[in-house]
Design a protein around this nucleic acid. Structure first.
Length: 295
DNA sequence: AGTTGTCAAGCTAGT
DNA sequence: ACTAGCTTGACAACT
């Protein structure tokens, strides 16, 4: 079992997800930003290893505008050395890596332009992981997409587009249950057709499910991960009390987390904390996992 | 120096 | 037909 957090380390004094406005785009600016992002990413990973955190989500913003038409710069070649150095560190310390393209990446959209842009962005994500030299266990997680008043056709479109994707994407792409449209059962139906692994999100499952228990859902999701995919990944969060539905909690509630650990007894998986105070909660969770001899 | 509005991009639900 | 919310940070323009 590994435990991790998302993209940002608030205490470390640098950011690995800096970007800038499209209007101020220049090759110089891009180079500076990417260099700083990668420097910071390396720092964060070193911090993590020191603190027994071996799972991390790399920002989609590592190379801003990488998939935008404005970017003609060959960032892969230019930053290959730096990517490889970080990749070596990741492999040396057996760090699990994920990436999560944001909500605009929709491969089952009705609009061809949206699908095309989404595929370009997936290529970018795969490029980052490939340039680091990471294997198939480094994953890119997306949601299935929109429903468009016809889930069957929307799923069909997802499958059709998926089949056309480059191998470098397919070997890494996993789908996540979302809080509105596609729950675990929907994802399992797609898995049956495509064999694509399913990443389980605890909070989304609370809001969108087919009455199956969390443990049952996690066990089903786990079956979709083959040896080459590595351990099942899950996103763990809980609801901020008194806030709007879906809003992630500020800092980890260790009692709830203990309950969760009870629920997954005997199931080995990697846990990504989606919690706002980032490494702070991760450190608390790691401490608990050590006390309970999980890690 | 601190505050506030805005940012490349999509979908859904509610008015 | 239109907009707020998702979830959220950080840039950039403004006090």
């Amino acid at each position: 079992m590994k435990l991790g957090y998302v993209t940002i380390n608030r205490g470390i004094g640098c950011t690995a997800n800096s970007n800038f406005r499209l209007a101020s785009y220049s090759e110089e600016k891009l180079k500076n930003t990417v260099k700083n992002n990668l420097d910071c990413l390396f720092k964060i990973l070193k911090f993590n290893v020191k603190n027994d955190i071996f799972f991390f989500r790399i920002s989609s913003n590592t190379v801003p505008f990488a998939s935008h038409p404005i970017c003609k710069f060959n960032w892969v070649d230019h930053f290959r050395g730096q990517f490889q150095e970080i990749g070596e560190f990741i492999k040396e310390h057996d760090i699990r890596i994920s990436m999560h393209p944001d909500q605009f990446i929709v491969i089952n959209s009705l609009k061809k332009a949206v699908v095309d842009k989404s595929i370009k962005d997936l290529i970018y994500h795969a490029n980052v992981l490939d340039t680091m030299g990471l294997d198939n266990t480094a994953k890119i997680q997306i949601h299935v997409g929109g429903v468009y008043n016809n889930k069957k056709e929307a799923v069909d479109r997802f499958c059709r587009v998926y089949k056309t994707l480059d191998k470098s994407i397919k070997k890494r792409l996993v789908i996540e249950n979302d809080e509105r449209s596609y729950n675990i059962k929907d994802c399992l139906d797609i898995n049956k057709i495509l064999g694509i692994p399913i990443i389980f999100d605890t909070l989304h499952h609370q809001y969108n499910n087919n009455k199956e228990s969390q443990r049952e859902a996690i066990l089903r999701a786990k079956e979709t991960w083959k040896d080459q995919d590595g351990l099942l990944m899950i996103d763990y969060s809980s609801q901020e009390i008194g806030e709007k539905k879906g809003k992630h909690i500020t800092s980890i509630d260790l009692n709830l987390f203990k309950k969760f650990l009870k629920d997954i007894i005997g199931i080995d998986l990697d846990i990504m904390l989606e919690i706002k105070d980032k490494e702070k909660s991760a450190l608390k969770a790691v401490k608990l996992l050590k006390e309970l001899a999980y890690i």
